[in-house]
Amino acid sequence: MWEYTEKVKELFLHPKNAGEIENPDAVGEVGSIVCGDALKLTLRIDRKTDRIIDAKFRTFGCASAIASSSALTELIKGKTVDEALRITNKDIADYLGSLPREKMHCSVMGMEALQAAIANYRGEKPRRAEEGKIVCECFGVTDEKIKRVIRENNLQTVEDVTNFTKAGGGCGSCIPEIEKILGEVRGERVAVKPEAPRRKLTNIQKIAMIQEVMEREIRPLLQADGGDVELVDVEGDKVTVSLRGMCTGCLMADVTVKNIEKKLKELVSEELFVEAA
């Protein structure tokens, strides 16, 4: 059972502003029934003052999705459109006391519905449609969304990215891609500080890291195509591998070995080179 705050329970059991405004000035729709949660936000906006006079929601989803939607409408009522745009998913979570980490994507959905509604009000194209390429096919999450949410919530792990955006929570095949994006965004932050000098690896550390990268990064990719690879030996900077399964005798075997080398150079040490046994 989830540990929901009293506020979440209250807004789930007795949601405020449930429903739909007729002839609304703005509509924001995000999510889908296939993904398991969806939110339709309708707003009444005073066009002279740009102030949100009324907000209503309809939500398909779990208790925290319903409570997050209700919280959003409470937060934005009375605000101008510009003020409302400053609301982040964190504000929604704070309004609710807190949300379980695994449910943070519900607050992100609220924020996105608001952004979509305001874009609709201003006659702009919705952000999602024009931005980025799809990373997570299962839940239709783009790289731009992942980057934005990582920055706004200072996310550190793939698990967090999944909790906040759902990306990677389905088949999991995009997890390497998410790791890459996470690395890039975090790299932006690191770049501000002077880069720490790279430590010289001991042999034991080097072999352990090579093994880990092989297991985590390389083998799953090859296995997905019916191939596999085995680490045979590490002597100095020479890494010997043996290709297995569909990789044996494959015309692309040389390319595969080169790609393994690239990955090891990137993640373990620039000095490494890879040979097939």
Binding site: L13, G61, C62, S64, A65, G169
Partner: peptide
């Protein structure tokens, strides 16, 4: 959505389960 049904049932002390994504802690 199933979790929402379960938590409403829970208000009446009715215990059941759901196969919905939200209850399993996974997203599917």
């Amino acid at each position: 959505e199933g979790e929402a049904i379960l938590l409403r049932l829970n208000e009446f002390n009715i215990c059941a389960s759901s196969g919905s994504a939200c209850t399993s802690g996974s997203l599917e």
